[in-house]
Amino acid sequence: MPASALRRALPVLLTAAVALLPGPAAAAPAGAAGFAAACPTTGFISQGHSSTHNGIDIANDYGTPIFAVGDGEVTISGYDPGGYGQWIRVLHPDGTITEYGHMYQRDVARGDHVVAGQRIALMGSEGNSEGPHLHLRVWADPGASVGTDPVPYLAERGVTMPCTPGTGPRPTPLDHPAESGRVVSARSADGRLEVFAAGADGVHHAWQ
Rank of each mutant, 00 (worst) to 15 (best):
Y100I: 09
Y100W: 03
I88W: 00
D57R: 12
R106L: 15
D107C: 05
T75K: 03
W87V: 12
A37N: 08
G43I: 13
H102A: 08
I56M: 08
A68H: 01
E99R: 15
H102I: 04
R106E: 03
I97G: 04
A116N: 11
F44W: 15
D80P: 00
I56S: 12
I45E: 13
L91I: 07
G85F: 12
F44D: 13
D71F: 09
I58R: 04
C39E: 09
G83P: 02
T75D: 04
H92T: 05
A68T: 02
G111I: 11
R89G: 14
A38V: 07
P93G: 11
F44L: 07
H102Y: 06
V90Q: 06
Y79E: 13
A38L: 01
E73I: 15
T52R: 13
D57K: 11
I58G: 09
F67E: 03
H53R: 04
I97S: 04
T98W: 06
S51Q: 12
V115G: 01
R110W: 03
S77G: 11
V69Y: 13
G70S: 12
D112K: 02
S51M: 06
I66H: 06
D57E: 12
S46R: 14
H53V: 10
P65H: 04
C39N: 08
P65W: 02
G101F: 06
G48E: 10
V74G: 08
V114C: 13
T75Q: 02
N60Q: 08
R106Y: 02
E99A: 00
G82A: 12
T64H: 01
T96V: 03
P65Y: 02
T96M: 01
G43H: 08
T42H: 07
G111L: 09
N60Y: 02
S51N: 12
G83F: 00
Y79I: 14
G55M: 12
G48D: 14
D71V: 04
P93I: 11
T98L: 09
R89Y: 02
G55L: 11
A116Y: 10
H53M: 10
I76P: 01
T64N: 01
I66F: 03
G43M: 14
A59S: 14
D80Q: 01
A37P: 11
I45N: 13
I88A: 00
L91H: 11
D107H: 10
H49F: 15
